[in-house]
Design a protein around this nucleic acid. Structure first.
Length: 110
DNA sequence: GGTGTGACAATGG
DNA sequence: GCCATTGCCACAC
């Protein structure tokens, strides 16, 4: 098992995030068994742009529900627009009702 | 093989 | 309660 599976797992989880739902880097990291590797999860998403396949990274935010990496989506509020397109309210780069929209992979993917 | 980094998270002042 | 620092793990150079 190569460690690179970590990246693939991250991509797999992010792709399985249902529309209108969001999750956190820590939740994904925790599901992968490395609760402290939340940073690596975010990094994987960063590299996801380089993979060529589109990853709904806009559904992945930090613990505060804030769109920390929106700038990586390009310019303006691309990330914000994507979220709003799915019915997610974003105010001040932060997801509204984040607690309700939170999607835990551990509960859905087991 | 060692160093640096990074879209986090938790802790301390 | 907000700002600064540390820890952490996996990848790139």
């Amino acid at each position: 098992m190569e460690d690179r599976d970590f990246f693939e797992k991250v991509y797999a989880i992010v792709r399985q995030i249902p529309p209108g739902r969001v999750t956190t880097y820590g939740a994904i990291a925790r599901y992968l068994g490395s609760e402290r590797s939340a940073r690596v999860v975010g990094w994987a998403l960063n590299q996801s742009f380089h993979t060529g396949s589109f990853i709904p990274a806009h559904r992945v935010v930090n613990r505060q529900g804030m769109l920390t990496g929106k700038h990586y989506f390009g310019f303006g509020d691309t990330m914000k627009q994507l979220l709003e397109n799915e019915g997610i309210e974003v105010v001040n780069d932060r997801i509204v009702r984040f607690g309700e929209l939170f999607w835990d992979p551990a509960e859905n993917l087991s």
